[in-house]
Amino acid sequence: MINSQTLVGRISKVVFLGLCLIVTVFPLYWIVVTSLKEPGAIYSLPLDYWPKQLSLDNYIGLFTKSDFGQYMLNSLVVALVAASVATLISLLSAYVLARFQFSGRGAVLGAFLITQMIPGFIALGPLYLMMTDFGLVDSKTGLILIYIAICIPFCTIMLRGFFENVPDALEEAAMIDGCSRLSALFRVIVPVMLPGIAASFVFNFVNCWNELFLSVTLMNSDSNKTIPTALAGFISSFNIDWGSMSAAAVLTVVPTLVIFAFASKFIVQGLTAGSVKG
């Protein structure tokens, strides 16, 4: 083990961790700086590491040239609804998979796992045709339904890990007191598991908020576009408007960054729950 008590050890630790932190955070710093430069100053040399003149032109341009406010609202609605429903559904399935032994349990888990190995593009064609049949192309409802389905497997797996940390005597006691299984689950277990549920929700939310390929495929009209679709739209074949792009990137990342900062502890627990116990 690295002995951090010695001076050399301590210095190398600080240097290494500091370096990692700088490298990790620098891209965020750089995109923020880029977004705050005047549009013309972005393409001028020598590079400014801190703009002499702060400017909000890129942000203003973003909202006047494109419907970015609408895209943000669309993303928010889609991600919020899909993440909530997916978390709720996964809560039920994770409960069953964590608490009961039955034949077919392994098969259900396996079926969830396989979804993590499929390259999404194999399903894209048939999905598009199916949504056409349902009349759900270019509709937020359609996108929400698909996002729910995408979130469920991993969310179930994550929540299952949290369930196993909650003693089952808890809901047994509630049921003896006359609760139904459903109300025992929501009145007794859910409050205890709240951090885990919050982490799963955040994870779902961020995934939906960031999803690109399905949204690009399904959402055609400007009033239905989500943020990633709009971002992809800033790339025309040869030219990228880096001013708008950087401003849009900052606006995309900041909300997820804020919720991640609050939930990262629980997400870490969720990711590592199953793997290293015992």
Partner: peptide
């Protein structure tokens, strides 16, 4: 240490596409 962990978690909040764009610019 907790704050450090939260900060190096930052890349996870960014979508793959956006990571690509950030590095494309850099």
């Amino acid at each position: 240490r907790g704050a450090y962990q939260a900060m190096i978690f930052f890349p996870w909040a960014v979508s793959g596409f956006l990571i690509g764009m950030l590095f494309r610019w850099m």
